[in-house]
Design a protein around this nucleic acid. Sequence first.
DNA 1: CGTAGCTTTGAGAAAAATCAAAAAGGGTGG
DNA 2: CCACCCTTTTTGATTTTTCTCAAAGCTACG
Lengths: 238, 238
Amino acid sequence: MRKDIHNSNIPVRCMSCEVRHKGICGALSADELQALSAHTRLVNHEAGDELAGEKMPAESYATVIRGVVKLTKTLEDGRQQIVGLQFAPDLLGRLNADENAVSVEAASDLNLCRIPKVALERMVKSNPALAERLMTQTLRELDEARDWMVTLGRKTAAEKVASFLLLIATHLDPEATGDRRQFDLPLSRADIADFLGLTIETVSRQMSKLKAEGMIGIVANRHINVPKLSKLKAFCGS
Amino acid sequence: MRKDIHNSNIPVRCMSCEVRHKGICGALSADELQALSAHTRLVNHEAGDELAGEKMPAESYATVIRGVVKLTKTLEDGRQQIVGLQFAPDLLGRLNADENAVSVEAASDLNLCRIPKVALERMVKSNPALAERLMTQTLRELDEARDWMVTLGRKTAAEKVASFLLLIATHLDPEATGDRRQFDLPLSRADIADFLGLTIETVSRQMSKLKAEGMIGIVANRHINVPKLSKLKAFCGS
DNA sequence: CGTAGCTTTGAGAAAAATCAAAAAGGGTGG
DNA sequence: CCACCCTTTTTGATTTTTCTCAAAGCTACG
């Protein structure tokens, strides 16, 4: 399952964050950003890489520059559930935790900006604006988790798949406008099933059904287009 | 559905918090506690009272002194999902939010310590220890939400009901020790179903099945005993 | 071109939902 | 304290949804 890892461990300024003024860097002064840059590393991972294991010691933080990260939990007998997806410019890692509550995996090829545990924690202590920004991200994650609980607990298989497609469509390119969307799924059918609490077969059947109903087009396995996002949204139940 | 509300709006020191040094009050100095006490009110609610509506303006915070609070989300067509339960000494209310993301209801009879929105937010700004404590609670809620996503997405009906009973057994009296437990369910079968993403009938059947297998005893409708908590835990899958 | 890994499709089985009705509690007023 | 009513819970029969098992079709890649 796990492929070779090719990291480019070159120290860099986190230009991506700085320029776009997103993520945690937006809460930093020029001086702080400069100081932080000394500790950060741009690293790359390929789809399938495991970045951190459930119940393993937490070693560092990282912000997502490009790609999608999946957070999973696994039952004793191997049943798996994806409990969150992280997109740029989210911060990976749980503040002040010694141990990971979830397993962290690259869903797609990734660029991350890695930050040592102590460096970030020191900076959070001295910068209330940064602490507040982390609180905001945590609250957003909590909202997303609760929204997904409704999907898992109360939606039909068809609504679950539609909700997933809507989530991806709106998160992959948040700036996109208009009612028509086109994108590549960052997750395999198996991952989608683990996200939705379904089997691969049910996911596949519901995708075919949505296609037959004209709700979506399946250009290639992973390449989807949505002619009317508003129609898809209405179908999701909320 | 909504019953009459009988509130005793008498200003008090939040002795319950102070004495037990739990919840947010544990992060406050004597002076701060004194100052906060001037703004707080002990209020009572009965089971079924709606404390705050989904998408309604957020008006105040409150800590749970006694009882259980349920957080729910509802789809357009009325399907409902409980997305969280709060026990003493949790803080109700989302920091800095103008609008509720969830509906807040008294699951059982309640005693709350109510805190005005501005009073708490001012105190959080000037007290990093309090901010950190709120961050800790939020992270715990996120963990709980993600754990529950696994239950909703990947467990069988029997495992879901067992997981719910385990949750209640361990949360109602966190100090209890030993492998035998006895408690009153703070939720009706309908609420349990909404928490587990099941129907009332399925919950009832699985409870009967757990009883038949000797996993639990049903003394009265709401009164449950668990002869071996470890056995129940093992049955939950994780 | 062949192979390995995904994905789709099909048929039958299992789990949970739905519809229906009986039983059990709980509170109220007599 | 009891009889009654209303609500909640349990149980039963049937239907629907989703899963499981099986096989075929696709894709990508060496």
